[in-house]
């Protein structure tokens, strides 16, 4: 489990650490903001970077290759953190651990990921960038350190790292 601010979660299953707050992300942002308010001074723009890769390929990597990749990615993360750009980072467990709930009056629980696709969502980042161009350049830094797959940049509409605000 990677976590931003360089801290590592000691709990194996805890998900994102709760006690780590990056100054840029300590307040909920985006709530109530519309696209028209973007670009105004003081309103930050968050982008998510969704990491897709073939799970079969990812798990075929040797431990050494994986470790080497993580070292390179951490270096990029450190750089982004130092620039105050980096928010939550998550590496997801394999899709075999996934459970899918189909919404409805009687939600249906299905074992496995929502979609059986060639590439799977294996992790994500939240980054703070002024423009899409900047987000693309930032994603490219990560992309250069990954062997396969794709990164999808998706602007974040609502981001609340600390639960509902009072």
């Amino acid at each position: 489990m990677e976590a931003f601010s360089g801290k590592r979660s000691s709990e194996p299953r805890s998900g994102l650490p709760r006690d780590v707050v990056c100054p840029l992300f300590e307040h909920p942002v985006g709530i109530g903001h519309t696209r028209s308010s973007l670009g105004k001074k003081g309103i930050r723009m968050l982008y998510s970077i969704l990491c897709y890769e073939s799970e079969a390929l990812a798990s075929a990597r040797t431990k050494q290759e994986d470790a080497a990749m993580m070292v390179r990615l951490r270096a990029v993360q450190q750089k982004l953190h130092d620039q105050g750009k980096l928010g939550p980072v998550a590496r997801l467990m394999p899709t075999t651990t996934a459970t899918t709930i189909m919404v409805g009056k009687e939600p249906l629980v299905i074992d496995g990921p929502f979609a059986e696709t060639k590439e799977q969502l294996l992790g994500f980042y939240v980054i703070d960038c002024a423009t899409l161009e900047d987000a693309i350049e930032t994603a490219k830094l990560l992309a250069r350190e990954k062997p396969h797959g794709a990164l999808e940049i998706r602007p974040v509409a609502v981001f609340n790292p600390v639960g509902p605000s009072k």
Partner: peptide, 14 residues
Amino acid sequence: NREMIGEGLALVEK
């Protein structure tokens, strides 16, 4: 290996 244990525990629960 905590990562493996995490995945193993998640699967036991499932």
